[in-house]
Design a protein around this nucleic acid. Structure first.
Lengths: 193, 193
DNA sequence: GCGGTTATTGATTGACGAGTCAATAAACAT
DNA sequence: ATGTTTATTGACTCGTCAATCAATAACCGC
């Protein structure tokens, strides 16, 4: 029963199923057949639309990065001063679309994939550059030339909180994670020595 | 030409080769044959001594954790006050035996493995508990009841710096990494509000 | 209602890789 | 010397899985 215009729906279903499957397995060692089954189609169709397993993963990764980007942008849009801008980047990073067990597990795995896939590495760099520049933009007026190192520390801390969240079963504590990073930020701003 | 007493040498060679191979590939997706070849033996022998691929990985992980533990212990042994104790834990984490490209890549992969292997998860928890208690022991006299959250932050920051180091090719900057975390520590101690 | 496009899958191929095994050989014990 | 234990490997088995393909079916413009 082929309905026309299925391509975008199928692609989206596969991306979703990929994130779910990788999240559930906690590993990229999942088969195309598993993903396709969860998306309600045959593995042949998955190959038809994406060509290869790697492309399926990369599409999933792009989706995660795009959701993350949208969330940070959303948080940023309401910020009216530098301090709120930096806080927005942090809070956006722990928003409900990104800071979920599935997405975190996928994130961790894509970090690993970036070690061997040039394309994955490129995507990860895009995200890191964007986060860095978002942070710097807000930090510069607040801490001047110390903005670089401070952004570095914030970025590393956020990444660290993420992977630690990957290890807990069930949904991670958004509030606690966010507070921890925001507290660090406060310290950096207070002690402006 | 079998020389007797080969077992410990072979096991050690396999552990070393595993860390090298995983580090080079940036992935656990390496074959037992690759590891065995690098260790200068047949894959059959690797299976003979370890039984399964997973056991080879776990032995490698235990080796990494044990080196890490020894380094932290070594750093701690020269600390004479709480502040130096905390600094020792941090500096031990970035000592040359652990904070190397290969070991970092392996670490990241074992983090992933811990999502699906109960044994790997157990080992990781051992390390995390030890680090936590090391930090708490030094922090309690310095920041009192805030020791818990502060240890949390330091731990996450160290983990974050580690995975970020995984993405750079070549050897990571030990000094910069260590300084970044120590600076965070100073802030936590200074602003003791 | 016919050629072309899109959707879809079951079956198949082909490769690869973990783990087993039988066979060989050196060392050791007695 | 002879049997036992340890070391070692090449060859093999057996699954698994990515990727392909031929076949089927629905829709579309004409």
């Amino acid at each position: 029963m082929p309905k026309l215009g299925a391509e975008p729906i199928r692609r989206a279903a596969l991306v979703k199923a990929t994130i779910e499957t990788v999240g559930a397995a906690g590993s990229l060692d999942v088969t195309v057949a598993q993903i396709a089954r969860r998306a309600g189609m045959s593995s042949a169709l998955a190959h038809h639309y994406f060509g290869s397993k790697e492309q399926i993963f990369l599409a999933a990764m792009r989706s995660i990065l795009s959701i993350y980007g949208a969330e940070v942008r959303g948080a940023l849009s309401t910020a009216r001063n530098p301090r709120d801008r930096v806080r927005a980047v942090v809070m956006g990073s722990f928003a409900s679309g990104s800071f979920r067990h599935e997405a975190i597990a996928a994130w961790l795995n894509f970090y690993v994939l970036a070690q061997s896939s040039a394309e994955a590495r490129r995507l990860l760099h895009v995200y890191q550059r964007r986060m860095r520049s978002n942070l710097l933009y807000g930090l510069r007026p607040l801490v001047g030339e110390r903005a670089g190192p401070v952004a570095e520390g914030l970025g590393a801390l956020i990444d660290g909180v993420y992977i630690r969240a990957a290890l807990v079963s069930g949904e991670p504590d958004r509030q606690a994670a966010c507070d921890l990073v925001l507290a660090h930020l406060e310290k950096e701003l207070e002690c402006k020595k």
